[in-house]
Lab assay of single mutants.
Amino acid sequence: NKASVVANQLIPINTALTLIMMKAEVVTPMGIPAEEIPKLVGMQVNRAVPLGTTLMPDMVKNYE
């Protein structure tokens, strides 16, 4: 099973992601793959992301 990106803390709306906000975890359903973490740094979330939430592509602005 591949790990996904999971919020390590509450991430407020429009916050630019940093490494300490994210962790890799095997979850179902899968979200953004953990190997994308370096690419996510500096990208903004378009909603508040609660602690423990799996990051999905539609939660990150301009994620492709």
Rank of each mutant, 00 (worst) to 15 (best):
A16I: 07
E35N: 10
L51H: 08
N8E: 04
T54V: 13
N46Y: 10
L55M: 13
T28Y: 11
A24K: 05
Q44D: 07
M59N: 07
D58G: 06
L51K: 14
R47T: 06
A48K: 09
I37Y: 05
N46F: 07
S4E: 00
A7F: 01
N14E: 09
N46L: 14
I13F: 08
I20P: 12
P12M: 07
M30V: 12
K23I: 07
D58M: 09
K39T: 05
I13L: 13
P29C: 03
M21I: 07
E35P: 04
P57K: 06
G52A: 06
T28W: 15
M30S: 08
M21V: 09
N62I: 06
L55I: 12
L19M: 08
T53N: 08
N46E: 06
V6K: 06
E64F: 05
A7C: 02
M43K: 14
P12H: 07
T18E: 04
A16D: 04
P29H: 13
T54A: 06
G52P: 01
T28D: 09
T15V: 08
R47N: 15
M56T: 12
R47H: 15
T53L: 07
A3K: 06
L51M: 14
A7D: 01
M22A: 02
A34C: 03
M22N: 00
N62C: 03
A34H: 12
P33R: 13
V5Y: 01
I37H: 03
A16V: 08
M30E: 11
P12N: 12
V60P: 01
A24T: 10
E25F: 05
M43W: 10
T15I: 05
E25L: 08
L10R: 11
T28K: 15
D58H: 14
E64V: 09
L19H: 05
P50K: 12
A24M: 06
Q9P: 00
A24H: 05
G52I: 01
N46V: 12
K39L: 15
N1K: 14
N46G: 12
V49C: 03
K2I: 15
V26K: 15
L51Y: 15
E25G: 07
R47W: 04
R47E: 15
K39E: 09
A7G: 13
N14L: 05
L51V: 12
M56V: 11
P50E: 13
N46T: 09
G52S: 12
L51P: 06
R47Y: 15
T15K: 11
K39P: 05
M56E: 13
V41E: 09
E64A: 14
E64W: 07
M56C: 02
I32E: 00
E25K: 06
N14A: 10
M56K: 14
M56Y: 06
P38Y: 11
M59Y: 09
V26W: 11
V45N: 07
V5T: 06
G52Y: 09
I32W: 02
P29W: 03
A48D: 05
G31S: 04
N62Q: 13
Y63P: 03
K23T: 07
M21Q: 08
T53W: 15
K2C: 03
V5I: 11
V5P: 02
M22C: 02
Q44E: 15
M59D: 04
E36Q: 15
T53S: 14
K23P: 00
K2M: 12
P50I: 08
L51R: 15
L19T: 12
P33Y: 13
I20D: 09
K23C: 02
I32T: 02
V49A: 04
M59C: 02
T18G: 04
K23A: 11
P12L: 13
G52E: 13
V6A: 05
P33F: 03
L19C: 03
A34P: 07
S4Y: 04
V26A: 10
N14H: 12
T15N: 07
Y63A: 06
V27A: 14
L40K: 00
N1S: 14
K23Y: 06
T18P: 01
E35Q: 12
P29S: 11
I13R: 08
I11W: 01
L55Q: 01
L51W: 11
I37E: 04
E36Y: 08
L55Y: 01
P38F: 09
L10E: 07
P50N: 09
V49R: 04
E25P: 02
E36A: 13
T54P: 14
V45M: 08
K2T: 13
M43Y: 07
V27L: 03
Q9M: 12
V5H: 00
A7K: 01
K2L: 07
I20R: 08
G31F: 02
L19G: 11
T54D: 01
